[in-house]
Design a protein around this nucleic acid. Structure first.
Lengths: 167, 167
DNA sequence: CTGAATTGCGCAATAT
DNA sequence: GATATTGCGCAATTCA
């Protein structure tokens, strides 16, 4: 657990931005500072002169920017925030995935129900038709006396609603 | 476009692995090597003694590991892979989210359909009951010949539903 | 302007 | 051995 390091990016036509870095630990006290475990100093390459053209080379605040105490503090905070953010993000993704599963199940349930209802409906309709036929027969073939001439509850005037449900 | 950098992590009880880095920019060839342009040496933290138990400190290949040509190449490849992987990951997340939306819609459709079927079923059942009653009346009160034809239950709201469910 | 949250990026360890 | 994933830190940017 120690810190300090350096990094530079500078990709493409990126402006030469150099930076530093280091990771630190978190295992224990967050406020851990350079424990000085077993680290060694080593020469590093770094952009030589900061000298700028129209340079307003501002930036000092306690030891030239990096390794500044405040800097470290900010970094640490940010690192924390990043971690948090990523955790959430991951969690959210997981939740979403689960939502998918739940919805799938729900869907199956609903489809099953629809199937059932459809079947019931179909049975009932058939029953109805049969009935209608019987009545019709009675009407058309009133042959026997004891017949049942009477009524014609012949409802069912071709009311077929073609419900195409769309939404 | 240049690169180079370094970083070490060392998190938690992570084995103190520190590294170094540096980046510089110079915006020229990608293959930029240590340009030596204007760089300065700076102390860096590094794991103290590499001394290992069965230590086989191998690693040379053109200038001690880093800044090795091959190293750079690998890094670049990896960076590419990483980018790709992340893209996919992101894409997948998006897809999942969309799937949720689709499933939600589907669900609503299904529920609507269920509602409809239920209603139809209910109507049909009522019709049935009424019918049953009529028949019962006829049986129980066959009294007059032309007798009790009375009611004409004319309910009949749409029965035949051509439910075409599509998806 | 200050600080947290996000996002893109590179490194390195690890998994495939 | 090479690519794919994953955790992590840095820094730029976006939000509050």
């Amino acid at each position: 657990m120690s810190k300090r390091s350096q990094q530079t990016i500078n990709t493409e036509q990126n402006r030469g931005t150099v930076s530093v870095i280091q990771g630190q630990a978190s295992g224990t006290t967050t406020t851990t500072r350079p424990p000085g475990g077993s680290l060694q100093l080593v020469p590093q390459l770094v952009p030589a002169t900061p000298a700028e053209g129209g340079g307003k080379a501002k930036m000092k605040k306690t030891s030239g920017d990096k390794d500044s105490d405040e800097y470290r503090q900010r970094r640490e905070r940010n690192n924390l925030a990043v971690k948090k953010s990523r955790m959430r993000s991951k969690q959210k993704a997981q939740d979403t995935q689960q939502r998918v599963n739940e919805l799938k199940e729900e869907n199956e349930r609903l489809e099953a129900k629809i199937k059932l209802l459809s079947k019931e409906l179909s049975v009932l309709k058939d029953l109805f038709l049969e009935h209608a036929h019987n009545l019709a027969d009675n009407v058309q073939a009133p042959g026997a006396e004891g017949a049942s001439p009477a009524h014609n509850n012949n409802n069912n005037n071709g009311a077929c609603n073609n419900n195409n449900n769309s939404q």
